[in-house]
Amino acid sequence: MNTDSYAVARLMMQFVIFNIINEEFAIDIKKVKEIIRVKKSTRVPQAPSFIQGVINLRGDVIPVVDLRKRFGLDATEITNETRTVIVEMRDDLLGLIVDAVTEVLRIDEEEIEPPPKNIAGLKAEYISGVGKVDERLLIILNIEKLLTSEERLKLESKDLGKEGSR
């Protein structure tokens, strides 16, 4: 997903919606290869800290990113809801560990707004847009930027207080 995709003339776009803390995030479904349960990963020394390790996905070795850690939070605790979203970035596959995958949504292109300067503590450059569905705000992530930037991030969620301390 590139930063100007909100401006691309398409009527409806499909997104995979997932949660981290209680923020709702979205990824363009075209980037998502599959969604799997969390697999045991192998740690890779000297990998960036948010890379939890590598897993074997039917014979391919792919890195898995703990999105909570990328957002400057504690590592994700694995629950029944936790999922790994396998996405394609450039020509590589990689997994994103998220609290839960909730649904696949069509969002009217009209309802996607350019990223605000800062949302939930994330700068505009990490966000491709914000989708508005009913009262919900869906943060459409720019995965490539998110994972190639070295900047330390800090997700600020309204629910962070109670969630972050568990």
Partner: peptide, 27 residues
């Protein structure tokens, strides 16, 4: 021998990864 992919390509001391008999990955 498998590549570790773009994000992990240039780790000194690690040339790649392989999949072991039990399905786990080893550097």
């Amino acid at each position: 021998i498998k590549s570790l992919g773009g994000l992990l390509r240039d780790i000194p001391g690690i040339a790649g990864a392989t999949i072991l008999g039990d399905g786990h990955v080893a550097p």
